[in-house]
Simulated assay, not measured.
Amino acid sequence: MSASKVAIHLINNCLSLKYFDAYMFGSTLKGVGRDIDILIVGPSGRALSSLKEEMLIASRELPLDVLYMLPSEAIQTDFIRQKGCIELTTLAKKR
């Protein structure tokens, strides 16, 4: 499945994503690899619990490897820039 199709699938099936910044990174962006690396950045709490449940259901269909970070962690590690993460919403537009 292409990166854009994965992004569309996640956006359509994980409704709690609207409360988070969600990115894809890794080999899937290049059309290779076996797992799909996803970064979720946002607050902890009830919305995160809901999202984790939704991602678990999505992982039954897709080989997801999900990393969760607080916004402060993402900033401190510069993870998004260093790993070349692309927002799921951007990928979803690249049909």
Rank of each mutant, 00 (worst) to 15 (best):
S16H: 14
S16E: 13
S16M: 07
L17P: 00
L17Y: 07
L17F: 00
L17N: 03
K18A: 05
K18R: 13
Y19M: 04
Y19H: 15
Y19R: 06
F20A: 08
F20N: 04
F20Q: 07
F20P: 06
F20Y: 12
D21H: 12
D21C: 00
A22Y: 02
A22N: 00
Y23P: 00
M24Q: 09
M24C: 04
M24R: 02
M24V: 12
M24H: 03
F25W: 10
F25K: 01
F25Q: 03
F25M: 03
F25E: 00
G26D: 09
G26W: 04
S27K: 08
S27G: 04
S27I: 08
T28I: 13
T28Q: 12
L29S: 07
L29I: 08
L29F: 04
K30C: 11
K30L: 14
K30M: 13
K30I: 12
K30E: 15
G31K: 03
G31A: 09
G31C: 08
V32G: 03
V32Q: 12
V32S: 13
V32F: 15
G33I: 04
G33E: 01
G33F: 02
G33C: 09
G33K: 03
R34H: 11
R34I: 05
R34Y: 07
D35S: 10
D35E: 14
D35V: 12
D35W: 04
I36D: 10
I36Q: 10
I36P: 08
I36W: 05
D37L: 00
D37M: 09
D37S: 04
D37K: 02
D37N: 12
D37A: 07
I38A: 06
I38C: 10
L39F: 09
I40Q: 01
I40V: 15
I40E: 00
I40P: 02
I40D: 01
I40N: 11
V41N: 13
G42C: 14
G42P: 09
G42S: 01
G42Q: 10
G42F: 09
P43Y: 11
P43H: 13
P43N: 15
S44D: 15
S44I: 14
R46E: 15
R46V: 14
A47L: 12
A47Q: 15
A47F: 10
A47D: 15
L48P: 06
L48S: 14
L48A: 11
S49L: 10
S49T: 06
S49V: 10
S49D: 13
S49G: 15
S49C: 11
